[in-house]
Deep mutational scan, measured.
Amino acid sequence: SASLEDVKTAVLGLLVILQTKLYTLPASHATRVYEMLVSHIQLHYKHSYTLPIASSIRLQAFDFLLLLRADSLHRLGLPNKDGVVRFSPYCVCDYMEPERGSEKKTSGPLSPPTGPPGPAPAGPAVRLGSVPYSLLFRVLLQCLKQESDWKVLKLVLGRLPESLRYKVLIFTSPCSVDQLCSALCSMLSGPKTLERLRGAPEGF
């Protein structure tokens, strides 16, 4: 439990870093931090981490990651405290083949985003970082199938509809809506759902 406290501190630090690096160059920093966060949550489900502190780590990670939004130009952003989304000039939600690297070039400044813009690109060529939603999407499927803490599952179920409104997140990387529907149906009809959940409301 003591070591998990250190892990929790590290994860919180990564969330803060991602919130900053999403809007700064090099964009590969945001890509790497995002991948680290998603990989860490995957390990929770792989090794069945069920301690309360592990659940709190997942809760905080999902609470942040499910706020990711994308505009029509595929640029990622996060809402501010007033709910207004600021889109990044440097990070996009497109999935890119590994051989192309985590970044790609664009020939010049991008068109203005639909929300308040981030800082304008400084040079004639900007390297865009790929932060594909499919990585998070796979972890969300694991959550629906394996999550043991009701608070975490409730958060994910509550945030998913709003995330799905931003269709560009889903359609720019390999996210299977069929698998999502299947996971939701299995969660509702499967007898093991109630068996594994802690803290579920009576009558769920």
Score class of each variant (00 low, 15 high):
1 S>N: 12
2 A>C: 11
2 A>H: 13
4 L>F: 13
4 L>S: 08
4 L>K: 05
5 E>R: 04
6 D>P: 06
6 D>S: 05
7 V>L: 03
7 V>T: 07
10 A>I: 00
11 V>K: 01
11 V>F: 07
12 L>R: 15
15 L>I: 15
15 L>F: 13
17 I>V: 09
17 I>R: 02
18 L>M: 12
19 Q>R: 14
19 Q>N: 09
20 T>C: 11
20 T>R: 12
22 L>S: 03
24 T>G: 07
26 P>C: 03
26 P>K: 02
30 A>T: 07
32 R>F: 02
32 R>L: 05
32 R>H: 05
34 Y>L: 05
36 M>H: 03
38 V>Y: 03
39 S>T: 13
39 S>L: 09
42 Q>E: 14
43 L>R: 15
43 L>A: 15
44 H>Q: 04
44 H>T: 00
45 Y>I: 00
46 K>N: 13
46 K>Q: 11
49 Y>H: 03
51 L>G: 07
53 I>Y: 03
57 I>V: 06
57 I>T: 02
58 R>L: 01
68 L>R: 03
68 L>A: 07
69 R>D: 02
69 R>H: 04
70 A>L: 02
70 A>E: 02
72 S>I: 11
75 R>P: 02
75 R>Y: 06
76 L>N: 03
77 G>A: 07
77 G>C: 05
80 N>W: 11
81 K>I: 11
82 D>W: 09
82 D>G: 08
83 G>I: 02
85 V>W: 15
88 S>H: 01
90 Y>C: 07
92 V>D: 04
92 V>Q: 06
94 D>R: 08
94 D>C: 05
95 Y>R: 09
95 Y>E: 12
95 Y>W: 13
96 M>H: 09
97 E>K: 10
99 E>K: 13
99 E>T: 13
105 K>F: 14
105 K>H: 15
106 T>H: 11
107 S>Q: 14
108 G>W: 12
111 S>C: 15
111 S>F: 11
111 S>K: 12
112 P>G: 14
112 P>I: 14
113 P>H: 15
115 G>Q: 14
116 P>A: 12
116 P>L: 14
125 A>Q: 15
125 A>Y: 15
125 A>L: 12
128 L>H: 13
129 G>T: 15
129 G>V: 12
131 V>R: 03
133 Y>F: 11
133 Y>T: 07
133 Y>M: 06
134 S>H: 12
135 L>E: 13
136 L>F: 12
141 L>T: 07
142 Q>K: 12
143 C>L: 02
143 C>N: 01
145 K>D: 15
148 S>T: 12
148 S>P: 07
149 D>T: 04
149 D>M: 03
149 D>N: 07
150 W>N: 00
150 W>A: 02
154 K>S: 10
154 K>W: 04
154 K>Q: 11
155 L>C: 12
156 V>C: 05
160 L>Q: 01
161 P>K: 13
161 P>Q: 14
163 S>W: 05
164 L>F: 03
170 I>W: 11
172 T>H: 05
173 S>A: 05
173 S>R: 03
173 S>M: 02
174 P>Q: 10
174 P>E: 11
176 S>V: 06
177 V>D: 00
177 V>E: 01
183 A>W: 02
183 A>Q: 15
184 L>C: 07
185 C>K: 03
188 L>P: 03
188 L>D: 02
191 P>W: 09
192 K>Y: 12
192 K>C: 14
193 T>L: 09
197 L>P: 02
198 R>Y: 09
200 A>R: 11
202 E>A: 12
202 E>R: 09
203 G>C: 07
203 G>F: 05
204 F>M: 11
